[in-house]
């Protein structure tokens, strides 16, 4: 299976999902009108990945902001990663020091998702 990679645009994030190292990255902003359409290929990729995951999957999320339909898609992504039973999965949630909104979003996901979400402050 191939790595999943997409360059960042003004409305969609950079997606870099490495199948051989288990290092995943999502960065930038995610505000497409149709988030499902944008994330569908990633959902399909993850459906394959979770069948044979790396011993450790480390998912870094460094978003500037995202719209509510993207937050739904993030839940979809996390639900897929919850299915990994023969490997460790960790989500690293990054937010800028003064960005309470992004911090709060990370806390929201913590309440919903059964994967460790580690909060990381980016100092300004």
């Amino acid at each position: 299976m191939e790595n999943f990679f997409l360059e960042e645009t003004s409305k969609t994030p950079k997606l870099s999902f490495d199948v051989s190292t288990g290092k995943f990255l999502m960065s930038g902003r995610s505000i497409p009108e149709n988030s499902i359409e944008f994330y569908k290929p990633l959902f399909e990729w993850l459906d394959e990945y979770v069948k044979k995951p790396c011993p450790k999957t480390s998912f870094d999320i460094k978003l500037e902001y995202f719209n509510t339909s993207s937050s739904k898609c993030l839940v979809e992504i996390f639900r897929r990663l919850e299915k990994v039973t023969d490997g460790e999965v960790v989500i690293n949630w990054f937010y800028e020091e003064d960005d309470e909104d992004m911090q709060e979003s990370g806390e929201d996901f913590k309440e919903l998702i059964n994967i460790p979400i580690i909060m990381n402050v980016i100092e300004n």
């Binding site: 988030s35 499902i36 339909s69 739904k72």
Partner: peptide
């Protein structure tokens, strides 16, 4: 906040692309 988190966890996305969260 509670309603937001519940909707985020349970709701489905409509055909129009809305998540009911806006």
């Amino acid at each position: 906040k509670q309603v937001y988190v519940e909707t985020l966890g349970n709701g489905v996305i409509s055909e129009k692309g809305g998540a009911g969260l806006g």
